[in-house]
């Protein structure tokens, strides 16, 4: 089996999940210039809620097919995450709308810690495993092996990205979001209820994060109250890599980061003569983050950082 092809496939799968989470960071940043550090935790809550629903359903209706059970989990996780994000924005960020930028940033970190601890109280410190109820078919693809789950993750992620793109570019809400991102005051002057647009942005990002949370837990086969931290940091790195505030950038950055990480993990052993192993895979995301911040702070597709209207 070809390591390069295999790691490329794995990287694209992981990368499409990063891209989905990165979209939530970048949309909020585009409008509020706020890095919503609680977004990773929203993703974690999506995974946890879905797993609770899945566990419950398997108990009361064991004859249901696995796909239906997981789908039900997702369908409950989405509104749960939307409600959570709406509440976070309303009670933690909105009161600080006109405060110096550091205040909401610190609040975001605080919200993230609160959510981690609440999740620990609700779901415990243990890893929650994702039951093996999904089909485990595998296919050969260009010398690599790809599972049905991996295919579903990539296809669903691409569909979600396309849907979000259409929403932002083609709908009245999307136009209002883009206008608000450029100038909140002028958007208000057009009759846009800016508070509502900001809420919609958070809620939309959270809905996508809920799905990403279920994807990542299904992919790794487990979930944990702390999983949102690393996932969030990586997605944030992906958003910065693509150019934070830029939707296409988040998609590109996510996919690239996934591939870089997978290839790095695949070859790090050979490159260091076996000194470092693939357990160092997390390090690549942060090499990329530091590299981007040093060499091209505006990211691959970002143009403006300083000259906002």
């Amino acid at each position: 089996m070809d390591i390069f092809a295999q790691q490329l496939v794995n990287g694209l799968v992981l990368g499409s999940i990063y891209a989905l989470v990165a979209l939530g960071y970048t949309m909020v940043y585009g409008i509020l210039e706020l890095i919503n550090f609680a977004h990773g935790e929203v993703t974690m809550v999506g995974a946890m809620v879905a797993l609770s629903v899945i566990g419950l359903l398997m108990g009361v209706a064991p004859e249901l097919p696995g796909v239906v059970v997981v789908l039900a989990g997702i369908l409950v996780a989405i509104p749960a995450c939307m409600a959570l994000a709406y509440t976070i924005e309303k009670i933690a960020y909105r009161p600080l709308r006109h405060a110096p930028r550091l205040a909401p940033l610190i609040t975001a970190i605080g919200v993230s810690i609160i959510l981690q601890n609440l999740a620990m109280l609700i779901w415990g410190r243990q890893y929650v495993s994702f039951p093996a109820i999904l089909p485990s078919d595998k296919y050969a693809l260009l010398g690599a092996q790809i599972s049905l789950l991996q295919i579903v993750i990539v296809v669903l992620a691409l569909l979600l990205m396309a849907g979000l793109w259409l929403l932002v570019e083609r709908t009245r809400l999307g136009r209002a979001m883009r206008a608000t991102a450029q100038s909140r005051e002028v958007a208000e002057l057009m009759g846009v209820n800016v508070d509502r647009v900001i809420s919609a942005t958070f809620v939309l990002g959270a809905a996508i994060a809920a799905i990403a949370g279920v994807m990542v837990s299904a992919y790794y086969g487990l979930a944990h109250y702390y999983m949102g931290f690393m996932l969030g940091l990586k997605a944030f790195s992906a958003a910065v890599l693509g150019g934070i505030g830029n939707l296409a950038g988040a998609m590109l950055g996510g996919l690239l980061l996934g591939v870089i990480e997978a290839l790095g993990a695949g070859y790090i052993g050979d490159l260091t003569g076996g000194f470092l192993g693939s357990n160092y895979q997390d390090v690549f995301a942060f090499f990329v983050l530091i590299g981007v911040l040093v060499l091209r702070p505006s990211g691959l597709l970002g143009e403006r950082v300083a000259n906002r209207a």
Binding site: R172, R175, A176, R178, A179, Q182, S183, V186, A187, M190, G191, V192, A309
Partner: peptide, 16 residues
């Protein structure tokens, strides 16, 4: 709105 097209700017004017 500099990063919206002329037509999109006009659409924003009719937002309500």
């Amino acid at each position: 709105f500099g990063r919206l097209t002329v037509a999109e700017n006009l659409d924003m004017g009719a937002y309500t």
